[in-house]
């Protein structure tokens, strides 16, 4: 079996995996990082979104071996200790989640959006989230949360720059 090694949430990990093992299976089964979810089998729902080398990808549509040597961040790696990432905080503040199943993917996608577009409009947010399906919220409060999270991230960036 091939061996993979990668950085996950800042920690070096490695393991033997079946070549057909998906990145999401490696994260959930081998590393017990069960915050990343699987909601579909056609690469559309986005519950499995993680960051690979800083960009959002669907971990259900990538083999674990394809992430060999990469730096992977999952929802478990977003907070600093018990202090949530500003986007996580914004989702709580704006009631941007209900059952919580799509939430990790939503947060990871939203953070990627703000990385490329620090002040997205409502239309831009709705368009960006085309690859993340939520059945609970009607997206109303998710949009509010992403907007709020972006503002928090901008404020934090500004504070860090000063």
């Amino acid at each position: 079996m091939p061996t993979v090694s990668m950085t996950v949430n800042g920690k070096q990990v490695s393991g033997e995996v079946d070549a057909r093992k998906l990145l999401v299976e490696f994260l959930r089964e081998n590393l017990l990082l069960t915050g990343t979810h699987v909601g579909c089998d056609t690469s559309q729902c986005g519950a499995c979104v993680v960051h690979v080398d800083g960009r959002s990808v669907k971990s259900c549509t990538m083999l674990a071996v394809m992430a060999d040597g990469a730096s992977v961040t999952t929802i478990e790696g977003m907070a600093s200790g018990e202090t949530m990432h500003p986007m996580q905080e914004a989702f709580r503040e704006q009631h941007g989640l209900q059952c919580g199943f799509c939430t990790p993917g939503m947060v990871m996608s939203a953070v990627d959006l703000v990385a490329v577009n620090p002040d997205p409009s409502e239309a831009e947010i709705r368009h960006w989230l085309g690859g993340n399906i939520c059945r609970c919220t009607g997206y109303h409060n998710i949009v509010e949360a992403v907007r709020d999270g972006a503002a928090r991230m901008r404020a934090l960036g500004k504070a860090a720059a000063e």
Binding site: I75, M84, H95, G100
Partner: peptide, 21 residues
Amino acid sequence: VKRKEDKRFLMGRGNYTDDIA
């Protein structure tokens, strides 16, 4: 009131059936 359950979901600490081994 902001939801008590949110932090665990937001930090990837939910415990859904498929998470159980």
